[in-house]
Amino acid sequence: MTQIPLLTVENLNVTFPSPKGDVQAVRQVSFSMSNEKLGIVGESGSGKSVTGRSVLKLLPSYADVAADRMEFKGQDLRNRSEKEMRQIRGEEISMVMQDPKYSLNPVRTVGRQIDEAYCTHRKVSRKEAKERTLEMLDAVKIRNPKRVYNLYPHEVSGGMGQRIMIAMMLIPEPSLMIADEPTSALDVTVQMQVLAILDDLVTQRGMGLIFISHDLELVASFCDRVIIMYGGRVMEICEARNLKASSHPYTRGLLNCLPKINGSDEYLPILERDEAWHSDQFSVSDRSAQ
């Protein structure tokens, strides 16, 4: 891994002002990734989504975002203007969000929305865009693309909606995809199906993927490396296959909270949080290959 990393973030801090004082959503988060599948796990409010969105610079304008480094393919993202960011969004970095019920525009047809994603970055005719869209719908294993093209978001199922989202976000062929809990709103039976499609397409295209989730098992089996976050801080970064063997007290705590089907434990242990984890001195243990 000597080439330029796809994304490098160093000391990212995000603060939201509020009447009750500032809320530090993300504190000194640093990580670096290449074309791999990087998982970010943590409890609700641990700063996973905010980290993802600050890479796209899509946090509300009142958020205070600061970082020592934020480089995408060697380009500094920090001083990019909105206009320059729009060239990157969709085209280079894109994002799939949690629930397709809310993340698709309810009054526009699916096809029109995917067309828009393509036409924003390519100068093509309507016909070409439609052809690409139909191909892309086919690529996410939608059986009858021509029919689905003219459907409205409320007329498709959750799993199909999420595949449509994936198609929409992959159509300009970005190099980094942020998947913000892409399967949390889905039925368990279609979760794996959607993940398989996402995995396939990301691997085929040699893209980087940031997979934000709170599902430890899923991340351990699906990703290459995992970042564990707590209270806006990175607790540890490790290889996904070593996750279960982690010795970090917080990660251990999370793992212990998972119920086992054949487990003999009557009670699940309560997660014990150490105040020291909130301190600046608490060091990030990067046990991954990098």
């Binding site: 729009r86 060239q87 969004r89 969709g90 085209e91 809310y102 993340s103 698709l104």
Partner: peptide, 22 residues
């Protein structure tokens, strides 16, 4: 405030189209 607005922005759609269109 809706999510689909963020989706449109993620796609790189110009802000005026996000506001006056979506």
């Amino acid at each position: 405030r809706q999510e689909y607005i963020i989706t449109a922005r993620v796609k790189g759609v110009a802000e005026w189209k996000v506001v006056w269109g979506h």
